[in-house]
């Protein structure tokens, strides 16, 4: 006969009564998975540096997150395991030069986690992208360290080994090995900017081997790996298509006509897309939901704005790449964008 359940009265909660499909940590760890190809490409072309930087950034991030959660009297376990601080750490580390000293990494993560994230209220409340705040701070604070990039594999005198890399990051200078001048190189974007400013033609500047087969030796593969990871995220519906598409399309629309008219005076569209941090930004940085726009149309404006400002900084600014500043500037505009891009609610007049 009937079986009376032990749990009478029944448990009660508001509708819906189905479990949610996904959790925050699930989304964050998918983002982390999607970043792995880019990190692998980076490690192949620029050596152990990225691996050490990722480990350091994750370590600093977790420690700072734990300290801030303690100070704010929040439960540590759910927030440490949600993957958000690891995502921030990975994105920040991917923007650092491979041999940047550890204090550069620590300073950036301090501003990312403590200032940009927790002082604004923690997960979900930060107005600015934490990784980009950290990056902007170190770009301004450590201009020399941030400009010392390694020559990609196949150029220069070979990449430093793991021990050499750890020593360089721990002490801040390269010793007992090849001279710094022999292993460092300016990034293609930097060369283009300084070259164009000194009235060289693009074809002359591009004669340098750092430009590689396509547009930037090594960098182009990191960008393509970011693209692949990003497409996977979009396919998994972790990120929406709006912001990345807007960024890429805007970049093409702005950079193609001048390049067609005067290819020797302007960056090629492919150069814009595949060098520097633009592709990473398109799929991993401007898709940060917390500091991005809430509305579909707002996401398009956000992506287009980041492209516009990045290209302007690359062409006219004092920095070789401007993704961090572009993202932070657009973060400031998000409340305004959200205000004016609300969708028309069902049944309201058109």
């Amino acid at each position: 006969m009937e079986h009376q359940p032990a749990a009478m009265p029944f448990a009660r909660a508001g509708a819906p009564h189905l479990p949610p499909r996904r959790r925050v940590s699930d989304l964050m760890f998918r983002v982390i998975w999607a970043l792995l190809p880019a990190i692998a490409a980076h490690a192949w072309f620029f050596g152990w540096g990225i691996v050490v930087q990722v480990v350091l950034a994750c370590l600093f991030g977790l420690i700072l997150e734990w300290v801030m959660l303690r100070l704010r009297a929040r439960p540590a376990q759910p927030f440490l395991s949600d993957g958000s601080v690891l995502t921030t750490a990975l994105l920040f580390a991917l923007c650092l030069p491979p041999l940047a000293p550890w204090w550069v990494n620590a300073t950036g993560m301090l501003f990312a986690v403590v200032v940009a994230k927790h002082l604004y209220g923690g997960l979900g409340f930060n107005l600015f992208n934490p990784a980009m705040v950290g990056l902007a701070v170190v770009i301004i604070t450590f201009p020399i360290e941030l400009s010392q990039w390694l020559a990609p594999r196949g150029l220069g005198e070979g990449l430093p080994g793991l021990i050499e890399t750890v020593r360089a990051i721990a002490t801040g200078h390269v010793s007992n090995g090849p001279a710094w001048d022999a292993i460092s190189a300016a990034t293609p974007l930097d060369q283009l900017r300084t070259g164009l400013q000194s009235q060289f033609l693009v074809s002359e500047i591009r004669a340098d081997p750092v430009f590689g087969a396509l547009v930037a030796r090594g960098w182009e593969w990191v960008a393509l790996a970011s693209l692949a990871g990003g497409l996977w995220l979009a396919w998994q519906r972790v990120i929406s298509w709006h912001a990345p598409t807007a960024l890429l399309v805007t970049t093409l629309i702005i950079s193609t006509p001048p390049w067609l008219l005067a290819p020797d005076l302007h960056y090629s569209p492919l150069q814009q897309l595949l060098s520097g941090g633009l592709m990473l930004a398109a799929f991993f940085i401007i898709t940060d939901p917390v500091s991005g726009s809430a509305t579909p149309r707002g996401k398009i404006i956000f992506g287009a704005g980041v492209a516009l400002i990045t290209l302007a900084i690359r062409r006219y600014g004092g920095f070789p790449d401007g993704v961090a500043f572009a993202v932070l500037l657009m973060n400031m505009l998000v409340p305004l964008i959200d205000r004016y891009t609300r969708p028309r609610v069902y049944g309201h007049p058109r």
């Binding site: 959790r23 979900g124 939901p289 579909p296 996401k299």
Partner: peptide, 13 residues
């Protein structure tokens, strides 16, 4: 077990 809103936009979609 609920976490803060991260503005992911799934609800908007």
């Amino acid at each position: 077990t609920s976490m803060p809103c991260i503005n992911c936009g799934f609800c908007v979609e």
